[in-house]
Design a protein around this nucleic acid. Structure first.
Lengths: 248, 248
DNA sequence: ACCCAATCTGCGTGTTTATGCGGGTTTTTG
DNA sequence: CAAAAACCCGCATAAACACGCAGATTGGGT
């Protein structure tokens, strides 16, 4: 095994999984730990990867967006963990975009077997880390604001999909006014997404509860699950429970 | 055993296995190590292979290496700048994925008015920075390896597109063998892309010139522009000019 | 056929590179 | 805070390499 070959293989692993463990490489390449360490060190010096304790990480697409810059990240992770309990092997899942959904994807169990349809390239990219997940990116006009695909072409494609679960973030939710938002095109999109899934889960950080925006997306009767970072016993959630939602 | 014969045989081994060990060649060709070393050195100078400690590798077998961003970045920027001269306001442009294309997008003039179709989420995301550019992301199964959408759904959508220019990177190009690659699905995709554009430009860093992989994508007659970081007067480009390509 | 120059090849010598191992140190984790 | 894992450092060694030189081969030119 030539050194350069090892480097190639290591880089391939990195590109594939975005991370490698030293021990895995020892096993895979049948050389000593020291050699792997030296390889990683060299590749790191050449800026090909990021060496960390225990292995190495991909350097390429940390840039997509900054982990630490996400607003209310802890809350979103808490939401993600709850939402995952709705996901089972073999499901067909439809997702929107947004940082909450991305956090959810990052928390998925590594050996999950499922099919994800998404309108968000960021979500799609994140999902490629999971070997057991088939990712279908729904194409269309790409929105410069919300960074998802939209437009009639997306909606007509959605019509052909029959998902088990639709996971979607929201800008505002209210016990009486239901789900509301500001962008008409995106609203049409969300309506279409709701129609093609057996059940719909809304992921929503608590500060967006009980707020209303200009345009109505859907009433609460179209929604099956509401997932926030709060405990179910919180006062603010009572009104939603009363409306018949499953609140987590 | 003539030198030329040895060189032929070495290249055959390289094309077959993507790698050779010096010691194996000594055994196979029944000559001294020094001779083999000199052979490899010479072939390396003629850009036929990549000499490494212990043997040599195929020039095209460095795919994973430079996929990862910064490698040969300057060359890719140079390529990008040349490629931009092909782009005019009002054009409909179809692009593939890969770091070279992303560099190109980064170099685009800020006030360009155009429509971009792309199969790469990364390219789409990068393009959203330009107000004057409409971005259509073509949807389909999302490839974990090459990070582009592919499959029959993509191909059928491509059929409805009529682009002015198709910009695409490549893994290997050769004066006789044309464009070649390793992944059958991606090859079919590239073929479909070529068919729906009036002209096709290949972006290719020089070290991928004169290399060949397993599967044929297209002959040079399907390609209109070849863009590398080299000057047109370079020796390696002669063969492509002779084939009638516009070489930049 | 002969010679000469150019090239090619193999060998000896000294150098560099790649790798694994032992022992001590740091980081992680429960 | 202690065990385990991962790490770093120096050393030994074998393989690969570079370089100079001499003999062998080749390919015209006369």
């Amino acid at each position: 095994m030539l050194k350069r070959e090892r480097h190639e293989l290591i880089m391939r692993q990195i590109n594939l999984h975005n991370r490698v463990l030293t021990t895995d490489l020892v096993d895979l390449l049948q050389v000593s730990e020291d050699t792997i360490r030296r390889d990683l060190q060299e590749l790191c010096e050449h800026q090909k990867l990021l060496k960390v304790h225990g292995g190495a990480l991909s350097r390429s697409y940390q840039s997509a967006y900054d982990d630490n810059a996400i607003y209310a990240r802890d809350a979103k992770i808490a939401i993600a963990k709850k939402a995952i309990s709705l996901i089972k092997d073999g499901m067909v899942i439809l997702t929107g975009g947004g940082t909450t959904i991305i956090e959810l994807v990052k928390q998925l169990p590594v050996n999950l077997k499922a099919t994800f349809f998404t309108i968000s390239p960021f979500v799609a990219i994140e999902l490629t880390k999971y070997d057991g997940i088939e990712v279908i990116l729904i194409g269309g006009i790409f929105s410069k604001n919300s960074k998802v695909t939209y437009g009639s072409h997306v909606i007509s494609q959605l019509a052909g999909i029959n998902a088990d679960l639709c996971l979607i973030g929201t800008s505002a939710i209210h016990p009486q006014n239901g789900l509301t938002d500001t962008d008409w095109e995106i609203n049409e999109l969300k309506k279409a997404m709701f129609h093609c899934a057996k059940s719909v889960a809304i992921l929503c950080i608590s500060e967006k509860l009980n707020s209303t925006l200009r345009l109505k997306v859907a009433g609460l009767e179209n929604i099956h699950y509401l997932i926030t970072e709060l405990s179910v016993r919180e006062e603010v959630l009572k009104a939603y429970l009363a409306k018949g939602l499953n609140v987590y």
